[in-house]
Simulated scan of single mutants.
Amino acid sequence: MRIALATAIAAFTLDEDLPPLRAALEARGHHAEPVAWDDPTVSWARFDLVLLRSTWNYTQQPDAFLRWCEAVADRTRLLNPPALVRWNTDKRYLGELAQAGLPVVPSHYLAPGEDPAGFPAFDEFVVKPCIGAGSRDTQRYTAPNRAAAVAHVRRLLEAGRHVLVQPYLEAVDTQGETALLFFNGHYSHAIRKGPLLARDGEATRALFAPEAITPREPSAAEFEVAHRVLAAIPGGLPLYARVDLLPGADGPRLLELELTEPSLFFPFAPGSAERFAAALDTVLATP
């Protein structure tokens, strides 16, 4: 089978998952080729399958990216599928999961035209766009710097972007973030991310913020929350899912459910690329 590993022109040399994934797929008899979604010369119909991998710049042109997903799906198979991608690329999905009873980091949303100061008072909090990735346009603020945060929100709203404001969970500074990786609904591995955002610091201007990654064994409580989150995914279990959890005062809290272009951290978990390839073959064998 000819498989396109969809990346971005700017991410070709940055995605550390691509080499081990390509090797694992080719060991199972597939031809796997990294291809940039934003390369207009690509004929996607020549592939039997397109795997969304490191399309990390989609946040700068989300409408074009979603149109591209639909166009690719009209020509071949896209995983994860367009409907799921459309739902997952806008962090307002977190509000839906919270309404369903899942333990989500408390989230307050602002839409263009709304008061940029219309979010609750927090001692420490994070401002981010609802469509965003890699910590771009994301900043951590303290209460004395609320005016700077309001200005940040105003810039995003005036650019036509929806905004998410969340309290900063202080345990992140000591415990970090846990990301659990699931392939076709089965747990593969997990990693720890160190704290990313400096207090009252500047947002990254790079494609993504540098991350301190180490392997991690999730707690029983983290597994329990992750499985509840997976069960709430619209349309059933996808080929790949990454559940990002933060330590809250009352237990793990969902920060993000990554179903579009998450790093899968193959270099930190021996055998994980092979597990992904096996999961893909299982999906392909299902009518």
Rank of each mutant, 00 (worst) to 15 (best):
P116H: 08
H162F: 13
S135I: 05
V153G: 10
D137Y: 07
L97A: 08
G101V: 03
E124N: 01
G95V: 11
E158C: 10
K91Q: 12
V126S: 02
A151V: 02
G101A: 04
G113Y: 09
Q139M: 15
T89V: 14
A159Q: 15
N145I: 00
R92G: 09
Y93W: 07
G113E: 10
A117G: 15
Q99G: 09
K91P: 13
D123T: 09
L94I: 04
L94N: 02
V126P: 05
R154E: 14
K91F: 12
F122R: 01
G113F: 10
V163L: 15
F125L: 01
R92H: 12
H162C: 13
Y109E: 00
P106D: 08
S107D: 12
E114C: 08
T89H: 13
A149W: 04
P116M: 08
V150Y: 00
R146K: 09
S107E: 13
D137W: 09
L110M: 06
D90Q: 08
R154Y: 02
K91L: 11
N88L: 04
R140E: 02
E96C: 00
G132F: 05
P120W: 12
K128I: 01
A121D: 09
L97G: 03
F119S: 05
L157G: 06
T142L: 11
Y93C: 01
